[in-house]
Design a protein around this nucleic acid. Structure first.
Lengths: 118, 118
DNA sequence: CATAGTGTCATAGTTAAATATGACGGTACA
DNA sequence: TGTACCGTCATATTTAACTATGACACTATG
């Protein structure tokens, strides 16, 4: 799965594209901006974007039409949501809670922060 | 500050040593295991440990006695706690909450997860 | 004072990631 | 049919991190 903690640039870009899909900015069967566009947007080399796309294709988030571009797979959003929710609940949150307890930060402080960032 | 998201090995080791201090496994004015020991523990090269120590010295978490080893600074735990709590509340938590909202995960699910990991 | 244990430093080599660049094949459309 | 825009691929280069190794200086201690 593509997580929010990717260390490489192409991994981060893959994650950012997933976020756009989750946000509804790229909808199913929509064309995604071209590799040269994305490279300009993120100020990176387009080869790096291609690597991000390879990741997304492997995960069946996007598919490719020759000579045209990349498109968001059907159900990509739904599957992404499911996978990322699981990742979040099973990995991300427990680690955050472990850190919180190490720092003597309790549920009350967390709840309060939640309300503040609403 | 040394965060839990360090990408390099020496950054991660620096963070792990901070955790040991927070947990009370390395107390103030205690000697920290030698660079060659730590290298064996973490299965890395001892030059990499030295780099972690440089970070920790710069942050005044540890200091060094020539020919003897590294020691935990006075008040290191207290200062670490303060700095990491701030980082956690101002950076880590807001980002986690942003992700949670993107995934339609609410405060109730977070609260429930907190109780479960007790 | 010899020796073993500390950290230190310099050098060289390896690896993975990212960049830069040019050439190429498929598609759309005027 | 030619031109512009897609993605693709190969190659070379650069950079940062990490590893490997050997030599060295300081400290404690028998």
């Amino acid at each position: 799965m593509i997580s929010s903690n990717e260390k490489t640039i192409f991994g981060k870009v893959a994650y950012l594209i997933c976020e756009e899909i989750l946000k509804g900015n790229y909808n199913e069967e929509d064309r995604i901006p071209g590799v040269r566009d994305l490279a300009a947007t993120y100020e990176i080399n387009y080869n790096t974007v291609i690597r991000a796309m390879e990741v997304l294709q492997r995960e069946e988030i996007v598919y490719q039409k020759r000579g045209i571009g990349y498109f968001v797979c059907t159900d990509a959003k739904k599957r992404l949501r499911k996978a990322q929710r699981e990742e979040f609940m099973q990995k991300t949150l427990p680690e955050i809670f472990r850190q919180a307890r190490l720092l003597d930060i309790g549920l009350d402080a967390i709840t309060e922060a939640w309300e503040k960032t609403k």
